[in-house]
Every structure is written in structure tokens, then in C-alpha cells.
Nucleic acid binder design. Structure first.
Lengths: 119, 119
DNA sequence: CAGTATCCAATCCGATACTG
DNA sequence: CAGTATCGGATTGGATACTG
């Protein structure tokens, strides 16, 4: 059994992190999963602190990675709709387990931080 | 049933992401989980591209969050050892599921990217 | 050995203004 | 409406050198 010299590459989690857990991606995926197909402006309202520039960047990345699908209607005014793809939806159980861990894990992290900071 | 106006905050995944999936944290946790307790220099060798400054930063953060434990021996030369805590180890099943998703998900992402880039 | 200190480059990100 | 263009500040991260 040979050991890889580089767990950064060997770590099977690392490549997924870049795709799924970069900034803003989980709130966007969550919003599309919870509330269904949304227009650009609706997403802006659902994520009040994101700017249109960053929202566009993240949506393009998610679209390129196949997690979100964009449909554009060249009407006047124009209409763009975003929805989660089957591949994106396949992350559902993962997110659910993450939320489950958060129930007990986050309070423990909070306690650890307070213990650490008081020294 | 009231809807939260801000999925960034409502998204139960978001708070965990900051703790567990910030840069370098998963390779570090993975290394400690796979190879057990490691000294600072051993971790440096396992993660060849990380610099000591950044490794220290991430280890301090993980220690503060209670995911990693540090034991320091003031010998000459000094010795510092890092190991995963029970809380850190409780992420194991999550990482496993993440790795499972990667098996089928990453190739699909790759195909989606090639399709996207060819337009 | 196990870090710190310092400097610098790249990136990100928000604010703002503008367009088809 | 659904973005794009531009600018500037802040954060991050690598390279390098140094210390108890």
C-alpha cells in the first residue's frame, strides 16, 4: 500500500469543495432548491446582501458546472430563469446531512471557541 | 409558515461551510484522520505546497473551533503534535458521503464544463 | 523544531454607474 | 429586467527571512 505524498490532492473531498462550497454557492443552491425556479431579480431579493455582479459570477459558475440551468427569454422586458438541475439536486442528501451535523456540531464549536478565547 | 427573507442566513448549511470548508481545512483534517497524530513538520511534508504561516493559521483556527487538539512539549528541540478531536472525527461520515458523491458527481461536472466551454 | 515577522502579489468583493 | 463596466478597498496567500 503506497501512501500518496500529497493529501491535498489525495483528499477526495478537496475537489468537491471548490465546486460546491465556494462563497455564495450554497445559499444560491439552497434558495433554488427550496423555492424552485427563480428569476434573476427574485434571487437578488432572496439574497439581499449579494450584488448583481457577484450573483452573475456565481450563477455562471454553477451553470458551467452543471448544477444550475439558465433559460433566457428575449422578450421586452427580458426574463431569465434559473433552476436547479438533477445533478444539483443530487446534492440534497449531502446538504441534509450537513444540516444534521450542524444541529449538534455548531453549539460544540461555539463552546470550544469560548473556552479557547478565555485563555 | 413564515419565509425567512434571507436564505444566506436561513440556509442551514452556510454556517458549517465557514468552519469546515474554508481553504486547507479539509486536507488537514483528512491527513490527521488518515495518518493519525502528526507533528507540525510532518504535516508540512504531507501538504507540500502549504507554507508554515498558512499552516499555523489554519491549525489555530481548527484548534479554536475544537476540531483539532494541539499538545506542545517544551523540549529541546520542541515538539508539537496535532490530532483530530472527537468533534472533528464526527465529520467522518460527512466526508465519506462527500467522497461518494464525488465518484459520480465530479465526472458529470467535468462533462458539463466541456459542454459549456465548447459554446 | 515550530513557529513569527514582514513584504508583496493576486484575488475577491462591494459600491456605483451604465446599457440592450 | 438582467445584466455589464469600472474602480477601489480589503482580505488572502505565497515567498522569504528570522527566532526561542
Amino acid at each position: 500500500m503506497e501512501r500518496s505524498p500529497n493529501p491535498e490532492l489525495a483528499c477526495p473531498v478537496a475537489p468537491v469543495v471548490d465546486i460546491v462550497f465556494s462563497r455564495w454557492t450554497t445559499p444560491i443552491l439552497w434558495a433554488l432548491h427550496e423555492y424552485g425556479r427563480q428569476r434573476f431579480g427574485e434571487l437578488e431579493r432572496l439574497l439581499p446582501t449579494i450584488t448583481p455582479k457577484v450573483l452573475t459570477q456565481r450563477l455562471r459558475q454553477l451553470e458551467r458546472d452543471g448544477l444550475v440551468a439558465r433559460t433566457y427569454h428575449a422578450e421586452m422586458p427580458p426574463r431569465a430563469e434559473y433552476e436547479i438541475t438533477p445533478l444539483g439536486a443530487s446534492l440534497g442528501p449531502l446538504f441534509a446531512q450537513l444540516a444534521t451535523w450542524a444541529d449538534t456540531g455548531l453549539p460544540e464549536v461555539e463552546r470550544a471557541r469560548q473556552a479557547y478565547d478565555s485563555h
